[in-house]
Amino acid sequence: MRPPLRSRDITRTALVIAGIGFVAYGAFLVLTTVGTASIVGLGLWLAAAVIVHDGVFVPVVTVLGRILFGPRTAPEPDSAMTSESAEHARGHRILAARRRPPVRNALSDRTALFGHRALAVTRALLVAASLVSAVVVPEIWAQGRGAANPTILPGDYAGNLLVLWGVVAAASVIVLTIGLIAARRRR
């Protein structure tokens, strides 16, 4: 938390009041230029945007991220760490928590297997490609609905997105392989 806004903090107070003024102007524009039926639609779309993002999008991404990588706070285990202590360190992870037999623990522990850096690079690649997809997937959908003339949405967006994911997948495999070799050498 931060210091609360106090009336003596003139700059911040003025900014907040100016901000509220702009918001009010925006609301005034909505009320005067958007028809009543449309205002209801607008309200539904605003609510849907928040619900879809906060209630669906983020939880799904969170679960996917945990399945693939585990929680982000996990520190890098010492290279000298035995697989037994690594198991302890990773005990809380979703996959590890499935009580796999000890023999398989080394495999389920991605950090020990590939090294932290290789995993971080892979995750960054996947995050970037997913963010790009957030823009392109609606485009592919819109293209599927059909365009009014051939100069609108003329590209092979699905093909290009597949190529992008192919490049990301190939780069991830390379990075993970390098990480795997480096981690083995450290042991």
Partner: peptide, 23 residues
């Protein structure tokens, strides 16, 4: 009309957000 009106709402609430978060 909506894209334009929301722009003012965003600018205003962003200004207030920056003021609240300034520290």
């Amino acid at each position: 009309t909506v894209h334009y009106a929301l722009a003012w709402v965003i600018v205003g609430s962003l200004l207030a957000h920056i003021a609240f978060q300034l520290p």
